[in-house]
Design a protein around this nucleic acid. Sequence first.
DNA 1: TGGGTCAGTCTTTTT
DNA 2: GACTGACCCA
Length: 718
Amino acid sequence: MSSDLLAGLNPEQLRAVTWPAKSALVLAGAGSGKTRVLTTRIAWLIQTGQISPAGVLAVTFTNKAAREMQARLAAMIPVNVKSMWIGTFHGLCNRLLRMHYRDAGLPQTFQILDMQDQLSAIKRLLKSLELSDEKFPPRSVQNFINGNKEAGQRASALGAHDFYGQKLIELYAAYDAQCRREGVVDFAELLLRSYELLSANQALCHHYRSRFRFILVDEFQDTNRLQYAWLRLLAGQDNAVFAVGDDDQSIYAFRGAEVGNMRSLLRDYSVEEAIRLEQNYRSVGTILKAANALIEHNDGRLGKNLWTEAGEGEEIRFYEASSDVDEAEFIVDEVRGLKREGMNLADIAVLYRSNAQSRALEHALVNAALAYRIYGGLRFFERQEIKHALAYLRLMDNPEDDNALLRVINLPARGIGARSVENLLNASRDGGTSVWQAACSAAGGRTAASLAKFVLLIEAMRERASGLTLAETVSLVIDDSGLRVMYEQDKKESEERLANLDELISAAAAFVPESQDQVLVEFLTSAALEAGEHQAEAGADALQLMTVHAAKGLEFDAVFASGLEEGLFPHENSMNDAKGLEEERRLMYVAVTRARQRLYLSCAQSRMLHGQTRYPIRSRFVDEVPSELLRVLSSQKPLVRPSVKAPWLEKKSQQPAVSVVDESMQGLHIGQSVTHAKFGLGVVVNAEGGAQDTRLQINFAEHGLKWLDLRYAKLQPA
DNA sequence: TGGGTCAGTCTTTTT
DNA sequence: GACTGACCCA
């Protein structure tokens, strides 16, 4: 009967699926059927009696992927998929910590801080320690803490060479102490804490080791050091780690992912050779050729070449727009055309490097009345009204949660202003208590009628909520806290916010808890862990807009890779070191390999960014695609930059550029491509000075922005 | 205390 | 452009 399962697999897939009970590394190219391999292997292991469902530990990259894997398995074999441990690292660690909260030294109902919460916790800490956030930017403190946690390092294990470093370490320790006091745990802490739980607790570790004989990991290229260590710990000497990944699609180094884990796995688990899945079932030939050519430019790859039995397909279309607006309009036109040809909007994606780029697209789409869906930006559980409501819920569950308390203590305004809060914070710091306790004692005092009311409000809500369902509780909180009235009175955006609050009640009604006794905690946990993954879900027929990161693992009939400009894609923060640039290129590789049939590449000669206009030049990634694969669209805009008068010049009327008389520019103008003997190709982006001393600012492809004196710089129109 | 305005800042990607 | 923090005034 296992032949059913294995039917239709190609030889490499079959080899991977039926790999014996030892560790393996599967190098799975984009569109090579890796999800199928992974799920089929689990099904095969169960069907051949090598493991029971409860012995399965599978790690996915997103919660959505975990759900999909469960659904697929349920369709493949008749087992209770609930008994399997399938989830993200964070989800699995959360599960572990909830089950063994005592051993882990956590309160039973510990709450999870998302990045926002963590940041505000850090800001609060800095304030209480009277450290200026100029010297210690909360963001970098956050990075420091998370970076170290992801490397498995506690503050106590760190050493510093200088005063500043020492201070950071102290902050890290103080932050952890604060979290402990408040009963909260950040993302990285979930992992680190469960790692420590297992390594400190032999019996527990053994228990899980003997349970999970087979450990399967998807998107292995995006695991970080701590996750790798966690896997090693669980695998011990005897268990088999079956890791599936693609080093060419490693795009999360910025948050600690180590592609090197792939090589480490080969070494640490004595895997002789990786299994390569190179046959692609997704894209046509030209797209694969482009992807292969592009990724060739990276060094140190494990090596892999995608091929297909499908035909060559169409050429890749390239369009260089005059502006971001023009680019958006071009995309809209093409999407309309595709729709006329019968393509579903939902099978078309517009990808971009950063979320901010969606604005121009959105604008054009609204004008064109095309249905679209944007993934990214603010997620549901990150919206302020939702976070406010959740904060009340958290507070009811655990009043020691200072983060939650401070968020809503004066929201809606109830006469507890900045001054009172300050006093509370001081009292809590001096007394070594939570802010809640400080509020309780201060509420007894004479001046604190509003504080007393707040304390009573929370307690009353807690009492009234007992015995209610989750949805009823959420509804009660929204009403009794005054949030609903507050938004009803507030005209700005109130409709949407109220709708979101109602949506929260619906989400609570639809929530399926694992157990009956911790429903609220589970709900809050899932809100934090799944805050809204930026992954597309099937829905109405609408054009899909998302970042390239969010598109990982997805595929579309047609893909627009937009904003292919130096400084944007590759992003300026990453393009100056080799590693950063290679990650950008992998990102581009991911973008390209999302497309099944048709791929568009586009860039713009001018773009509004951060509220000002920039004149970027075409991304090097466009040039890394072999030109014979490209079809350049728009005849009046050849690959070489045109030297027509740029339309955006009019907009620059307040800019210094205007003070320059035309003659002084020797026939050059802003937006024009030029070459310089030393700096190479660039674009004139600004000008200043008078007729005698004109200086031009030029954005060079290789050397970035430079001011050059027109009298000396020998510039040639390109 | 609370609401308003304004200037200044920082913008890559996210489990 | 969006969000923050600072400042001012009722």
